[in-house]
Design a binder for these strands. Sequence first.
DNA 1: TATGAATGAGCCTTCATTCAT
DNA 2: AATGAATGAAGGCTCATTCAT
Lengths: 216, 216, 216, 216
Amino acid sequence: MRYKKSAISARQIVDAAIRVLAQKGYARASLNDIAQEAGMSKGALHYHFATKEALIDAVLETACTAVQQRTIAAWTTGANPLEALHNSLVELWGTRAKRTDEALVVADLLAQSLYNDRMRPRLAKYYDLAARQLGDYLTEHLYSLGVRPRVPAEMLPRMVIGLLDGLVLQSFVAPEVLDADAVVRALETLALSLFDLSPVHRDSGVVPSAEQAERA
Amino acid sequence: MRYKKSAISARQIVDAAIRVLAQKGYARASLNDIAQEAGMSKGALHYHFATKEALIDAVLETACTAVQQRTIAAWTTGANPLEALHNSLVELWGTRAKRTDEALVVADLLAQSLYNDRMRPRLAKYYDLAARQLGDYLTEHLYSLGVRPRVPAEMLPRMVIGLLDGLVLQSFVAPEVLDADAVVRALETLALSLFDLSPVHRDSGVVPSAEQAERA
Amino acid sequence: MRYKKSAISARQIVDAAIRVLAQKGYARASLNDIAQEAGMSKGALHYHFATKEALIDAVLETACTAVQQRTIAAWTTGANPLEALHNSLVELWGTRAKRTDEALVVADLLAQSLYNDRMRPRLAKYYDLAARQLGDYLTEHLYSLGVRPRVPAEMLPRMVIGLLDGLVLQSFVAPEVLDADAVVRALETLALSLFDLSPVHRDSGVVPSAEQAERA
Amino acid sequence: MRYKKSAISARQIVDAAIRVLAQKGYARASLNDIAQEAGMSKGALHYHFATKEALIDAVLETACTAVQQRTIAAWTTGANPLEALHNSLVELWGTRAKRTDEALVVADLLAQSLYNDRMRPRLAKYYDLAARQLGDYLTEHLYSLGVRPRVPAEMLPRMVIGLLDGLVLQSFVAPEVLDADAVVRALETLALSLFDLSPVHRDSGVVPSAEQAERA
DNA sequence: TATGAATGAGCCTTCATTCAT
DNA sequence: AATGAATGAAGGCTCATTCAT
């Protein structure tokens, strides 16, 4: 009972913190702001989280998890593996570029982690997980087609994620420059190019690469 | 005389600020720290830069310029265009992944700009310039070979830059994960894949793509 | 309990502020001084009053009220209306010329209000109230005698107050020049002269003016 | 030559200071503001006036003198002494209520002098002079008519000045409340009442008071 | 479990003053 | 006679943290 109530309050605080952090960034978000947003007193915050750092840790955990779950949810399947990939990329870009509170918080805390030794491992873990997820997906859906990537298998997901992140940064800075469609098409082309496949239209099947053609 | 002295001092301050910002980040870097690092009094800072914001503006300008100039310097030429590209990518990644003060500052201020309307346009400008530079380079060195990219011409440089940025973030968070050689090779493969060229070894020439082979 | 504590602390701060302001004036009174005088930390000041301005507002309110209450208390009554007036003037001058903290604060903030648009209306309100109080008093005690003032009814209290203020300034600048007795006698003469009454000795009754004598 | 150049600059500084002080008040007027207004460097200010205090002293001197000279100029003469008085009062009120820079500075520094022992004597001197001037004028123009004031001769000018000052304060705080005509008429009535004279219209002559009438 | 009150360190900024030139 | 540069003290304010209740 008591335990549950506490958990609920703690959760409220974290949620409020995410909202505030998303709006003002770590540097400018005070515990006062967060307490107000959570509808509690500053004292209550410190009851649940001894220090600001502890709260931010929880926030980072929650935000990363949220982003990850959305990412997982984005891995769609379909009759056609290429179509599935396309749809997944659409989802992926959507959840990242949409400037959701959690995405903003992760981006902000990522920057903070450059100077914060305690934060860094957590984000590294987050990246690892994301890379592994994507890696598994690609393995399952593309490797199985018999094609081999032109880059090392462990680089592939990191590249896709890196490209997503890098483009998201650009789109955050200048939202109008990057068109969602263009980005997705580019990502798709990239993914397939790295897989030694020809460019692709939505409904196209797998096309053998130059090398494969040569071999054939 | 005086004029020059002033310019020198201002430059000293900016340099000190870059060092401090690189080490602590915008949020935690106080004018006190910067003044100390610059070997001047806090009052002197305000003599040269009316507000912290003004100083940061100057810092951003300087850091971006520095990063850009290193980037420009990275565009090498060579007898073989592909070799030139390879060398350029080595340089590019090197200057970014090296965690130079300027690169860190740009990354940090990039994050700050998410919540700072005055900063954002400056970074957008910086990205624009970088994209244009890379675009010009690619046009000159690859377009001229008669091949066409698989993605829109204006997306191409943004993708390469995005990938660089995204990977840099990952390498900042977990330096040991990404191997410089692997990254360069991956970037190279990416660039060429997008150009409808086969993967490349240093000394190889241009290889026609699947489509081009077909046409032939 | 807590609520009361807060009110008490706030009051302590305001009182301390009045003391400090009276001694150093608005410009030279720092929150540090006030905090020290109040026996609290600077942070506590800001807990109770968000800004210095807010604190000064409270100070002004309190000081004006205090002066006003002393003024009200000065309106004595007596068997003889003229004696009552005399006593009232003695009191009035006493409370003003005595250099009480509140009087000094009001004088100081009055000067500040010349350049402070937010303060001005408050002082105007204070003057209005004072004028109305005095007006009512005069109406009740002198009008009722059947005499009419030689100046417009709404000017009369403002003149008496103005004279009081003006003389107070002189006495603040050079305390020894103005003798309390002389001032009171002069004020009395003024008040009565303006009421078309002959000069007065404590025990004298009402004497008809020239005009009234003529009419008779 | 050199001496003159210096005097000119010093004068420029004082004039600029008066303008700035009139606009912002002593507390908020920085030497920077003054230097800028004077079109000189801060260093130059300190060349001419070692400290801010020294400059303010000069400002006080100049402003008081200016106000005094305007006051002197206000003492008009005329065929009819009462008409002369009236005109003088019009002038007097005009120069004070007009919010000239010098008047504002004197008012502001008057407030400062409450806490500044070095300033106070200068303002006392200023008041003395003003009182003596007015005293002389009244003596010459009214005493000579054979009437005697109802208040001590040395109180009379201080009362008129006090009333002027007090009303000016009120008019500064709430300009719309006091009508210039009404003020002048009231002052006139006051002056004459204290002189045991009936109220006056511009063109009226001297009218005996009640006491004088009785004696007659 | 939660609050109101209070603290104290630190931040950005202002400003009178100094000084070499 | 004047300037640009630099100083350092102080000011108002923010904020994470503590604590009695």
